[in-house]
C-alpha cells in the first residue's frame, strides 16, 4: 500500500457505482432478460420492417408495426434488469450486507440508481437499435430510449417498495393486457394515464384513440410515474428498518 492510497478519502461514488454494476452484471437474470428482449424486439422489428405477417384486424389486415402494445412488449423483459437490480436486495438479506458496506443510505441509493440507469441505457440501446435500423426509423431512437428507461425506473422503484422481484414484473406486464382492456372502455381518461398507455402515446402509437395523449403529455405522465416510483422507493429505504 502506498502513501497515496492511505491518504485517499473514504469511498468514492465511482467505487460504489462500480460495486453496484458488478452486482447487476453477476446476476444471471440480467443476461436472460437482455437476451429475451433483444431477440423479441429484433424479431418484431424484422416482421414489422418486411411486413411478412399481417394480422387480421377489425378493419382488414393490419401491419404489426401499427399494433403498439405488441411492438412495446419486449420492454417488459428489458425492465426486468432494473427490477432484479432492486428486488434482489431483498433476497437472503442482501440489503443488510449492502448497507453494512455503505451505511449512508442516500449514497447507496444514488450509486444504485446511477448503476441501474447506466446498465439499462446500454441494454436499451442493444434492444432498440436493431429494430429501428431494420425499420429505417433511427430518428425515433431518442424517444424509444426515454420510454424504455422511464418504464425501467418505474419497475425499479416498485421493486424497492414491495421488496420482491415478481410483483413489479407481473403487475407492469399484466396491466396493459388485463386492466387496460377491462377498464379502457369505461374510463379511458384514467387508463390513458397508466404507464403503458402513456409510453405508447410518447412513441406515437396509442392503442386506441380514446386513450391517446400528445407525445409531450405522454412523456410528462411517464416521467411523473418514474419520479414518483423512485421517490417512494427512496423514502421507504431511508426510513424502513432493514
Amino acid at each position: 500500500m502506498t502513501a497515496a492510497d492511505t491518504a485517499r478519502p473514504a469511498i468514492r461514488m465511482t467505487d460504489l457505482v462500480a460495486a453496484e454494476l458488478t452486482k447487476i452484471r453477476s446476476l444471471p437474470a440480467t443476461w436472460i432478460a437482455l437476451a429475451v428482449a433483444v431477440v423479441a424486439n429484433g424479431a418484431l422489428g424484422f416482421i414489422a420492417a418486411t411486413d411478412v405477417v399481417r394480422l387480421a384486424g377489425d378493419s382488414g389486415p393490419t401491419s404489426i408495426a401499427q399494433i403498439g402494445t405488441l411492438m412495446l412488449a419486449p420492454v417488459y423483459a428489458f425492465l426486468a434488469i432494473a427490477v432484479f437490480a432492486a428486488g434482489t436486495e431483498y433476497r437472503g438479506g442482501q440489503l443488510r450486507l449492502s448497507l453494512a458496506a455503505v451505511p449512508g443510505r442516500g449514497r447507496f441509493l444514488t450509486a444504485k440508481l446511477l448503476a441501474t440507469l447506466a446498465a439499462s441505457l446500454v441494454a436499451a440501446v442493444l434492444v432498440v437499435l436493431p429494430s429501428l435500423v431494420l425499420r429505417e426509423a433511427l430518428g425515433d431512437l431518442g424517444r424509444y430510449l426515454v420510454a424504455y428507461l422511464l418504464l425501467a425506473l418505474i419497475g425499479y422503484g416498485l421493486a424497492f417498495t414491495v421488496r420482491t422481484v415478481v410483483t413489479p414484473i407481473a403487475v407492469l406486464s399484466a396491466f396493459p393486457i388485463l386492466i387496460s382492456t377491462t377498464l379502457g372502455g369505461l374510463w379511458p381518461e384514467a387508463v390513458r394515464l397508466l404507464p403503458h398507455e402513456a409510453a405508447l402515446s410518447l412513441l406515437g402509437m396509442p392503442a386506441d384513440p380514446a386513450t391517446t395523449l400528445s407525445p409531450g403529455a405522454g412523456l410528462l405522465v411517464l416521467a411523473a410515474w418514474a419520479a414518483g416510483s423512485v421517490a417512494a422507493a427512496w423514502i421507504l429505504v431511508i426510513r424502513r428498518d432493514v
Binding site: L55, A56, V165, V166, I169, A170, S173, A174, I177, L178
Partner: peptide
C-alpha cells in the same frame, strides 16, 4: 415459479382475447 406461471397465463389469455390466431 409464480412469475412464469403468471406470464404464461397472461400470454395464453392475450392470444385468445386478441383473436390473433383465431383469425389466422
Amino acid at each position: 415459479s409464480t412469475l412464469i406461471g403468471i406470464v404464461v397465463s397472461v400470454l395464453l389469455m392475450a392470444l385468445a382475447m386478441t383473436q390473433v390466431l383465431a383469425r389466422t
